[in-house]
Design a protein around this nucleic acid. Structure first.
Length: 480
RNA sequence: GUCGGUGUAGUUUAAUGGCAAAACAGAGCACUCAUAAGGCUCAGACAAUGGUCCGAUUCCAUUCACCGACACCA
């Protein structure tokens, strides 16, 4: 059995589930389903990232315990998954799971043992006005933009550091050896030039006294790990690394590593830091990192609550259905570039391609079949493979383009041959011709249904059922 | 500021050193199996200026506009 391992980024539970995460999840799900159809055994991972300052603060603000807060938040993401039409055997890792905490600690220990972790004084910038630590990029002319009159204080504390600087050459070598590690290529170029420009060691711990909500650093009670050091380890802790050697061997070693879907804000963490961390632990690197663009509001403006241009995936699914949302983020949102998502665009695409296009074609063909009692045998699942190359380059939109071209051809065929007339012929020759025409159309609809299996699973099943029952009880997509 | 990228119809995208393709939206025609759907026809674009070339939307340069990276934001 061939194996395949794909994961989404674990969303940070501090924010509400947004449409960008829904998109990432749906896309990874499509790839997972397609691989399954191709005959692979698939490990599909997602989960929630639950440590760190922001979460602790959010919990405090609500007056609930941190644990209570993350339990609830994690549940919300889980709920979203089922709303998105995700295959049932998804692995869901929480960074607060015991097995993950243990794995993160073990990972730390190995990196430490291999000499890539050290202790040093670290200076943070602190704004008294905000009562927060600031990063260099937060500051404007060395001042806090919110409190420009106050002086930024420098606080010294002891931190653990990861020797990222030692990985410049190994990373560049990795990129050289593996020219498809990061896709699309312009993102790969970005990370290459970042690594080329030189790497600094980075801090991977926080003082527990200031921020207790994290994975304890092994052998040092005073520190917890900085969130993403533990979060990235989730890609292997979900495989039960290090305890279950067989599982790790099966899903990580033999597959050539994981395919990681992520947003462009995660480029560095996933394609440089995590790869360096794996090297530090002497583990094989990831197989591929797929970088999505951002979903924006109208005119490419960033989505924000204050602007009121956010899209809630749950609302969209409630009104239009799971497959409608899947369709839109797969075909109408660019696979790699930033793309706008507005309800106007969504509705237009829905009516044009799902209601008038796919839905209407199925209705008209099924009606002819039912009225004249003409049926076809179910076709095999083989054909999806013809898109393997497009799926392998994550161009799901092009797969859709091809399927929709087929839908249009079928519509044209009906117009040209008018089987609804031919079938009413009085003579046998004409009538037989009509039967053949309708059978052809039925086969075509069945075929389209099969091709849609990874993309619109619910719709694909409905089409299969319609072909089997030789009738359709209700339209696939009502016009809105 | 440095580096990288992008600029094509109202919108979202495609292709190409030799007639710029499609979808949605718009206008019209004929049809009726279908979700007032679908088909056909029409209208509509290469950011600007130079250069190389027989010929440039494509290659080069400049300008303008937009975007991204330039590290501790999951």
């Amino acid at each position: 059995m061939k194996n395949f391992y794909i994961t989404t980024t674990l969303p940070y539970v501090n924010a509400e589930p947004h449409v960008g995460f829904a998109m990432e999840f749906i896309r990874a799900d499509v790839i997972a389903r397609e691989k399954k159809i191709e005959g692979y055994d698939v490990f599909f991972n997602t989960g929630t990232d639950e440590h760190g300052t922001k979460i602790q603060r959010s919990a405090e603000a609500l007056g609930v315990s941190t644990k209570e807060y993350v339990d609830k938040a994690s549940e919300k993401f889980k709920d979203l998954l089922s709303l998105l039409g995700i295959s049932s055997n998804t692995h869901f890792i929480r960074t607060t799971d015991t097995k993950h905490v243990k794995a993160a600690q073990e990972f730390w220990k190995i990196c430490d043992k291999n000499g890539f972790i050290y202790n040093k004084d670290y200076t943070t910038k602190y704004c008294v006005g905000c009562e927060l630590e600031k990063t260099t990029s937060d500051l404007v002319d060395g001042k806090c933009p919110i409190h420009p009159s106050l002086t930024i204080e420098e606080i010294k504390e002891e931190n653990y550091f990861f020797k990222f600087s030692e990985f410049q050459k190994p990373l560049l070598a990795l990129y050289e050896e593996n020219p498809t590690l990061v896709t699309p290529s312009f993102r790969f170029n970005e990370i290459k030039s970042f690594v080329k420009s030189g790497l600094e060691d980075f801090s991977i711990s926080r003082l527990k006294s200031k921020m207790p909500w994290g994975v304890p650093v092994p052998g040092d009670d005073a520190h917890v790990m900085y969130v993403w050091f533990d979060a990235l380890v989730s890609y292997i802790s979900t495989l039960n690394w290090p305890d279950d050697k067989d599982s790790f061997d099966r899903w990580w070693i033999k597959t050539g590593g994981v395919v990681q879907y992520c947003g462009k804000d995660n480029l560095r963490q996933q394609s440089a830091m995590w790869q360096a961390m794996l090297m530090a632990a002497r583990l094989p690197n990831s197989k591929q990192i797929v970088i999505n663009g951002f979903i924006t509001g109208e005119g490419g403006i960033k989505m924000s609550k204050t602007l009121g241009n956010t899209i809630n995936p749950i609302d969209v699914v409630k009104e239009y259905g799971t497959d409608a949302l899947r369709y839109f983020v797969l075909r109408e949102i660019s696979p790699f570039e930033d793309s706008p998502f507005t309800m106007e665009m969504f509705k237009e695409a829905y009516n044009a391609n799902l209601a008038n296009g796919l839905g209407n074609l199925v209705s008209r063909v099924m009606k002819m079949a039912e009225t004249n009692d003409i049926s076809v045998e179910q076709t095999e699942m083989v054909d999806v493979k013809k898109y393997a190359a497009l799926y392998d380059s994550y161009e799901i939109n092009k797969v859709c383009d091809d399927i929709w071209a087929r839908i249009q051809s079928a519509d044209k065929y009906i117009q040209e041959h008018e089987p609804f007339k031919t079938i009413k012929s009085k003579d046998k020759v004409g009538k037989d011709k009509g039967v053949l025409q309708i059978q052809f159309l039925l086969a075509e609809v069945a075929h389209i249904g099969i091709l849609l299996a990874p993309i619109l699973p619910e719709t694909s099943e409905k089409i299969a059922k319609a072909i089997k029952d030789n009738k359709i009880s209700e339209p696939l997509f009502m016009r809105k």
